Computed example of a mutant assay.
Amino acid sequence: MTDQTMITAETGAIAHEGLLDDWMPRKELAGIIGISADTLKRWESRRIGPPCIRIGRKVLYRRGAVRDWLLEQESRKTAGRGRAAR
């Protein structure tokens, strides 16, 4: 057994510490960026929000992918500023 795994005392099951440390559920991300979980759900269906994965009914977002998505939104915004107003 590695130091990343351990057997829980109550169930005897192997727990993988840190396996999902880089992932967060929809509700947590919604709270962090100040929107509703329903908005994230709508964005997912329209494929316009940050990338996510599904494990059964659970939707998870990788922190690094969310950061990349936010940077992409920023670069799209600043790229449009160079145009002259008509």
Rank of each mutant, 00 (worst) to 15 (best):
G18N: 03
L71A: 02
I55M: 11
Q4G: 14
A30E: 10
E28A: 12
A65K: 05
A9I: 06
K41G: 13
R42N: 07
K77S: 13
I48D: 12
T78Q: 00
E74H: 14
R81D: 15
K27W: 00
E74L: 15
L71M: 10
G18Y: 07
T11D: 14
L19T: 00
R81H: 10
E44I: 04
T39L: 05
R54N: 07
E10F: 09
R62W: 02
L40A: 02
P50R: 03
T11W: 11
R57Q: 11
T11S: 12
G80P: 12
T39Y: 07
K58I: 10
L29W: 08
H16K: 09
R81Y: 11
G82A: 13
I7L: 00
V59D: 05
R26T: 07
I7R: 02
E74Y: 14
G82D: 03
D3C: 11
G49W: 07
E10N: 10
E28W: 05
Q4D: 15
I53P: 01
R63V: 03
G31A: 10
E72D: 04
K27M: 08
R42S: 00
R42K: 05
R83H: 14
L60Y: 01
G64D: 13
I48L: 13
M6C: 13
K41S: 14
G80W: 12
G12Q: 07
E72L: 04
G49T: 14
C52N: 11
R62V: 01
W23I: 06
V59K: 12
W69M: 04
G49F: 07
A37I: 11
L60Q: 10
L70T: 08
D22S: 13
I7C: 00
A9Q: 03
R54V: 01
L20M: 02
E10H: 11
G31P: 00
D68W: 03
R47D: 05
I55T: 12
R67P: 01
M1N: 12
A79Y: 02
G56T: 02
S75C: 10
V59M: 07
M24S: 10
R63A: 10
I48A: 13
R83M: 12
Y61D: 00
P25N: 11
W69A: 06
D38V: 14
G49V: 14
L20V: 04
V66F: 06
G12C: 04
R47Q: 08
R86A: 12
D3E: 00
E28N: 04
W23Y: 09
A84S: 12
A84I: 08
A37G: 10
I55W: 05
E72K: 04
A15I: 11
T11L: 13
T8N: 15
K41W: 13
R57M: 04
Q4A: 14
L20T: 03
L19D: 10
E17P: 02
V66R: 08
G31V: 09
R54S: 04
A30C: 06
L60T: 07
